[in-house]
Design a protein around this nucleic acid. Sequence first.
DNA 1: TATGAATGAGGTTTCATTCAT
DNA 2: TATGAATGAAACCTCATTCAT
Lengths: 217, 217, 217, 217
Amino acid sequence: MKQRAIADEDKQARRDSLLAAARSLYLEDTRQLPAVSRIAEAAGLAKGTVYLYFQTKEEIFTALLDQEFSALLDRLTEHFLTASGTPWERVNLFLEFYAKYLQEHPEFLRLAAMANSVLEQNLAQDHVYNFKLQLAQRLERTGNALESALSVLETGSGARLMVRTYALTLGLWQLLDYPDAMREVMMRPALRLLAPDFATELTSALKQFWRGVLADQ
Amino acid sequence: MKQRAIADEDKQARRDSLLAAARSLYLEDTRQLPAVSRIAEAAGLAKGTVYLYFQTKEEIFTALLDQEFSALLDRLTEHFLTASGTPWERVNLFLEFYAKYLQEHPEFLRLAAMANSVLEQNLAQDHVYNFKLQLAQRLERTGNALESALSVLETGSGARLMVRTYALTLGLWQLLDYPDAMREVMMRPALRLLAPDFATELTSALKQFWRGVLADQ
Amino acid sequence: MKQRAIADEDKQARRDSLLAAARSLYLEDTRQLPAVSRIAEAAGLAKGTVYLYFQTKEEIFTALLDQEFSALLDRLTEHFLTASGTPWERVNLFLEFYAKYLQEHPEFLRLAAMANSVLEQNLAQDHVYNFKLQLAQRLERTGNALESALSVLETGSGARLMVRTYALTLGLWQLLDYPDAMREVMMRPALRLLAPDFATELTSALKQFWRGVLADQ
Amino acid sequence: MKQRAIADEDKQARRDSLLAAARSLYLEDTRQLPAVSRIAEAAGLAKGTVYLYFQTKEEIFTALLDQEFSALLDRLTEHFLTASGTPWERVNLFLEFYAKYLQEHPEFLRLAAMANSVLEQNLAQDHVYNFKLQLAQRLERTGNALESALSVLETGSGARLMVRTYALTLGLWQLLDYPDAMREVMMRPALRLLAPDFATELTSALKQFWRGVLADQ
DNA sequence: TATGAATGAGGTTTCATTCAT
DNA sequence: TATGAATGAAACCTCATTCAT
């Protein structure tokens, strides 16, 4: 039996180790959430113990997604704060940075794609609320940085642009993603439309969108 | 309905009645796919019979989604073919029509949001392929109609614009959707960003995107 | 649709073609009875049609086993009627002939091993009775031939000796038989006892038994 | 019985209680294996729990048969170790003891008759191997005791004699067994050959066989 | 707090048998 | 007679969650 985590910091550490185990297992196969028993095992704990730290399995992955969102939006905020050049140059730099980040963190969009359909499904309202609140606040913050970076934006519109940018990203991902095993079959000409390189297509689509944004102002 | 579906048309009718039962049950609670046994029961058939028509539960809902896509894209194609006015007027009419359609078919986006994360998971590669192929072909067709409607588009770009339009729609929906039970809590100011009226926000975002598209040409 | 079998001889022919199909499929994998649908398919008929000729699946294979018994016992009877030499020589010749026959008809004992545990289980009493009756009559006949061949036997004991000989055969088969896939593992020394060559062990065991029989007289 | 079987001995007890439930249900109707759900119910457990202790239904009954074999062969070993008299007297005592035991445990041979045809069919090779290994080892042990009891046997021949004795038993049982419902019909003279009292016929046949064995030495 | 046995729902699968056509 | 769609029972299986220890 594992040593009991009694102090708050011990509990937090145990929670973190469960999240780390979950992330690690999820990365092995991002097509499905790993079983709780495997997460427990990977963390060196018993299955029941997981439920002392998370109320449901989905809560684990929502917490994970929350971490990922936090990391991404922090990076973007930071990026915006150091941007320079004309608005369009800044947009281009941002989109490059963004696409590169997503490419380096393939787990993010896969997990995010489950947020609405899988994760929020078996989650207490409370947790859905908290998750959305965190996300909204982070988007606001990043939106503000975006506004500073692109002085042409109307006050208050930055966060909404972040929402739309992310929405387009998420939707494109879901349309264009396919399992590795289908790589070959996706090469057929008839599927050209749904099989372009994600990063390329994303950048192209977002540029088109941002052209509209800047035209708005 | 015949007791035994022997003619091909009877079989198709039976298949459709299973899809109708599945749709009806799904609408009762769009947060999860209904059990196969309930679908069978709702269609007045034995569980085993369902598996004569569909290999897995996911196949049922993929077929349903396929129907929904078909209906939507047929309507859009039709709409494009009768459009008139300046390009921007035509875009506005299209977006209004589109947003209205989605509002009247709330099951569509909920189901579509599962396509990547839930439905394709337990589906033979074959079926995923066929589903994607159908979708691609329909998008091509609608894209062509779009090109005719908006003479300013480059040849071949219509389908890609459809993909991006749909992607933005799907992503926005996932970010803005929440269970009915959370309506009250979503009204809090801190969540304003993630709780606007979907149709309004969708129209606004798509207009912004299409502004970019037209600016491109 | 197949031509209807109306004349009795047509019906018998159809029944025989089903038996032939069943035998052929059974030989492909003697570890389990083939599905009725496969038998029907192999005979070029529909599944339901099989049930016009046999009441249950087991009835098919009982009929098959009946054929096999008939063939075996006819051969043995014939063999006994032409035997010569001392009683012990005749026994040895018989056992050699018998073991060789079984080796050349591996389906027989596999099917026979199912008679009690599988076939009779789902069979109308009527059919079990008829099957047993046929078997008993054939054993009597062969037993009589055996008595003629071995003049030393008491009148009436031939059939019982046939029963016992067959019982020892059947039991040995079940103890020593194993799936092909286990061949390698059965070679381990610890399993030597249950993995000798069946024909060799059968001959040895039956000689021992028949030594007792002749000692009795 | 504890509510949760945590200690190894509790687990063994639970496993045994499942086996007891299986045996009890099997005795109600030895023509077929009871459903797993009924076994679970009879043991006061959920169906899923059964699968914590056994991987398949067949494994349950193989384990049961293993127990039965163990009990029988232990009793025989014990019997041999206390035998006295001339070899032939010892054989007679053994056969009486053996026939009586089988008569008192009617489930044994019914279950044993399924070993080859039903039980091993849906069993992992591993389990078949283990079952055979156990059986072989027990037969060796009993065979050794038999050699001690009958000093006239060649060293190493005891286990093989046990195999043959058991084979004759199993085969005879399958030929002579019939469902209770057929008792009346089996009385008809034409079936005399296949309807003698099993215990009597077994003893007679085995005596004949053992006469041959002793003649061999 | 920690454990892991127990639960139980439900998806998947197979197939002998029935029965409307 | 012939068909094959429909049935329904059960095995098989997985796994999130609960709860006695």
